[in-house]
Design a protein around this nucleic acid. Structure first.
Lengths: 322, 322
DNA sequence: CCCGTTTATAATCCATTCGACTATAAGGGG
DNA sequence: CCCCTTATAGTCGAATGGATTATAAACGGG
């Protein structure tokens, strides 16, 4: 059985043909006054990114270095999102492949970010159909729904037509289905496929659609952003990651507003409080917040201890069903 | 703002220093007669893998090609697990980095795999402490617990000692905590850190421990396997992936045994049936299985339609709590 | 100073979920 | 025919979690 590490040996022998460049991309998220924001560079159409190089000790430290260099912002919590190859880069004629490794980072805005050419932009600039806190956005019924149905009707085969209609109905809660905020990535992919994203028309070199929604980004950065959004919306339901976005002391309503900003939907207040308390995620600081506008609220802090305990329990947040 | 795609441009300008090799690694899982198996090559100490090369259209197709070449086994369902860099490869003096992109694949054994040098091995050969179907393995109380406690006591600082004890207690359900099958990766990491895995003593070039548990693998392959195990145990609870492991027609008990094999714990039978049925995951084929040993059982098949519907619902499986 | 507004905080109601258990049905073998 | 095995149906009860109501405490305006 001398051929055991065959693959690796072959790879090294003929390594020349198998060299790739690895790119690190970050979705850096914060929430300020109930608005979820993402850290962008350029004209707000680009996520912080850079190649993984020899001087980086690890993928994570490489990512931290690039983000700090490009935005002046140090990162706390980070988690890997997804790795993919050959977006639209292979078509420039060079025989060089790029692998993109994307990360989700949670932080707080506060750090004054010097004069870098970076900016915090609201998630919902890029995905205006995702914010359901004030009800279903009109954009959906006025623009997206008719366009999606037209796209479905465009299909040649009958089966394809009904499949497209069903996919759209599930993703966007047509035909009185209930809205599912975790489907953010599926919705982006559907809109891309239907030619409603500026990126799609650009990539296909086809005629620009008469109606595209949300702010576009370079390459596949908006897709990566959608991936981060979907991951975060899913994760806040079973892991206490929200606290990475909170200041050291906060009121329960501030915590709720942060979750709502991420989920893009409103939460029942008493139930939210009950769940937070019975899970012992927070403890009182003893101080009160006076600038609530009404009755002063207790200030709480995250119980760091649960970061170990919770590995067992799983932390749920009550996101009301439609 | 002409410096927008700065990172990428820099990367290309000085590309020479930033070349890496990308390796694809597969955890291929099947379940046969209630035994969960993983596809290995070599002496059962190596997962199928190979470099990502120019001829591969995508990461996934590259992975499929390597697995099929090395094992003769075509893959169905695959999902990305994790990407990591610089395992223990950077220390051989070469200035060359390797990025490993790991995948989880679910399949069925059936395909006669020619005469390749590959073999199906039980998961629990590598993680004997993970199978709790017949009660808690004696290995835990007899070997792991004393060794872990000794490791905890070894720490110099008081805080470190109590932290190690707490981590061990959570992961292995000491001090009458309840067993959580999803912590498989944490358990492996803990045992590695405590020097109980042959890989750890090998990596550190330290004296081999007097007691190591389970079959070791090359490099970090056993860690990757643990990652796949943990991911799968988590995922079967909210997505209907189990059916990728089932034959076209099966009895409800066979389905239950498969879930139990993956989870490493037993499930309450009436509750399992109730959950499967009320979620409409399966439909009757009209045929019966006669070789049950008792009363004949209805044969069911997976309702492919739920693969779309379920995007909304989330499919739970009742894994009884300790 | 009262009173309406705003927010905080506590308590209750109720449908659903889900673990645990019991009971009945239908095959085979001695 | 009894007894083993497994299949299948039904019940009980605790806990979860969504929805609603009630009370408390600040502020500001008339």
């Amino acid at each position: 059985m001398e051929d055991r590490p065959k693959a690796t040996r072959n790879g090294r022998a003929a390594a020349k043909a198998k060299q790739v460049e690895a790119e690190l991309i970050a979705v850096v998220v914060s929430v300020n006054d109930g608005e979820p924001a993402v850290l962008t560079i350029g004209q707000g159409d680009c996520l912080p990114s850079g190649p993984f190089a020899l001087e980086h000790r690890s993928l994570q430290s490489g990512l931290r270095a690039w983000v700090e260099q490009q935005t002046g912002h140090p990162l706390g919590y980070i988690e890997q999102l997804y790795t993919f190859a050959d977006g639209d880069r292979a078509d420039d004629g060079r025989q060089q492949r790029v692998i993109s490794i994307s990360y989700l980072a949670l932080t707080r805005k506060e750090h004054a970010t010097g004069a870098s050419s970076c900016a915090w932009r609201s998630w919902y600039d890029y995905f205006p159909w995702e914010d359901h806190r004030l009800g279903t956005p009109k954009l959906i019924a006025d623009v997206l729904k008719p366009r999606l149905l037209a796209w479905a009707a465009d299909a040649e085969q009958n089966a394809t037509r009904s499949e497209r209609r069903r996919r759209a109905a599930i993703a966007f809660a047509f035909e009185d289905r209930s809205w599912n905020e975790e489907l953010a990535l599926k919705r982006y992919e559907l809109l891309y496929e239907a030619g409603l994203m500026a990126e799609a028309t650009r990539d296909r070199r086809s005629v620009a659609s008469d109606s595209t929604a949300g702010t576009a980004m370079i390459a596949d950065h908006r897709r990566i952003l959608a991936t981060g959004l979907a991951r975060l919306r899913s994760k806040i339901k079973y892991r206490p990651v929200v606290f990475e976005l909170m200041p050291p002391a906060f009121t329960l309503l501030q915590l709720q507003r942060t979750v709502e900003a991420l989920a893009g939907r409103l939460i029942n207040k008493p139930n939210f409080r009950r769940l937070i308390e019975q899970q012992e995620l927070v403890e009182e600081t003893g101080k009160m917040s006076l600038d609530t506008g009404g009755r002063p609220a207790k200030l709480y802090q995250f119980r760091r201890a649960v970061l170990d305990e919770t590995a067992v329990a799983g932390t749920k947040l009550p996101l009301a069903r439609g």
